[in-house]
Design a protein around this nucleic acid. Sequence first.
RNA 1: CGGGGCGUGGCGCAGUCCGGUAGCGCACCUGCUUUGGGAGCAGGGGGUCCCCGGUUCGAAUCCGGGCGCCCCGACCA
Length: 486
Amino acid sequence: MADDKKLTPRSEDFATWYNEVVQRAELADYSPVRGSMVIRPWGYGIWENMQRALDDMFKETGHENAYFPLLIPMSFIEKEKEHVEGFAPELAVVTQAGGKELEEPYVIRPTSETIIYSMYAKWVQSYRDLPILMNQWANVMRWEMRTRLFLRTAEFLWQEGHTAHATAQEAEEETLMILGLYRTFMEDWIGMPPITGLKSESEKFAGAVRSYSCEALMQDNKALQAGTSHFLGQNFAKQFDLKFQSEAGQEEYAWNTSWGVSTRLIGGLVMTHGDDSGLIVPPRLAPIQVVIVPILKGDDPSAVLEKVDEVAGRLKAAGVRVKIDARDNLSPGAKYYEWERKGVPFRLEIGPKDLEKGSVALARRVVPDGAKRKSFLPEAQAVAEMPDLLEAFQSELRDAAKARREENTVRGVKSLEELEEALDGGAGFVFTGWNGEPAVEDAVKERTKATIRCLPGDEFRSAETPSKCVSGSGDSVTEVAWARAY
RNA sequence: CGGGGCGUGGCGCAGUCCGGUAGCGCACCUGCUUUGGGAGCAGGGGGUCCCCGGUUCGAAUCCGGGCGCCCCGACCA
């Protein structure tokens, strides 16, 4: 008999492990539509918690939500040259509606810069109308050749922020502020600490002047671009006539930024924290933080169920998201495996023995070295300490991920041979000098499949600034972080 | 688009080479006994064998043509 209860171990086949976790933790499932997935309640619940946290952060920094159409006139996409070149191959186009051929085709938005800035142009006359700070929660579609659950789907959910400013400096400050906001969110909520920095010219967003990104390191040591923030300059403003009259009375084009994170973050969460038993959800994002499994013995389960209700009520009052799993068709062990697979941080078991002793059994989803998975403690203590236990669990996940990122980062690499050796030896990020030439990126990619993930920001740079380019030709003009990427 | 693997009850698979009217495990339903790490026994329900065409008395199986999915590559915020 094939044992289909166990997951493929990460060490055996990371890609298969990932697919199994996503499906068996009920995050998502394949749909009848090519490349599009169904996000199931457990996955969507995590996304809702991400949305809530991010939305609060956007509002705190002065942004408002709005909504723009799904369909964008083809001519809009074509206005910005680099933009259309970047997106043309992956557009889905609507040519018919109402039983008739459309006069002008619509594209299903791959991103909304064009339609949003066309509207901003209507709304802005004076510098007094700026800045405009808007965000949209939406779905977008990009017809990718090869898709993977959450990491690259044809349709995905995201937020896209779009701002317009009177000066380049203000727009640049916005771009970097959002980059920092994303980083904080990834560290404090997902427990997935990224490195951040500027994209190289070849990797920047189609239509941007500069792109910044958050790059997180997964357990297989591949990098995941987890969020981007773009300084668009006046590229779109000029094409969509987004002008304003300045304080000095001059007519000027506005300066734009755009920035986004998507449901890809859920894929990042899985590959950052998951283990061979399944998913592990950071407490702040977990739809259920504590599951209570009643142990029902003998003829009369009512006393245990009453106690379970009472404990759940007190945990809820303390702000903890609790679920009672009182299904009577499953044994306790089967429930344990299920909730562990789904990544719930803590489990409480309450049975007849606990009623006698006033205790509960507390099991952790992640067991620290040398500790035991289960501990037995007084009920009052378990309830009182739970909020702190959840926060401690959250921090442990983040710290472990950060430690893993640093352990797998190699600095001070000075030649292509060393770079290749490091990557083949399983390194994640490899820091080197770079002369700024795209030819070096091509050569490295050809040889190692790694790309420049970013030109790291101040605090991620090495103590010793590299002086020579990793290619051996010329001086380094900047340090760069290389990695194989998703 | 190139290479590889695969389409058979909800899931995972066997059966295909060698044609004979579909089977196993899990899941599901009913009953009883159970429940502190994937419960047991008994009974039961469920399948256009991816699609179209051909060969044949007869096709999951043979032949031809499609379609779809997964992995690796190429490509891609």
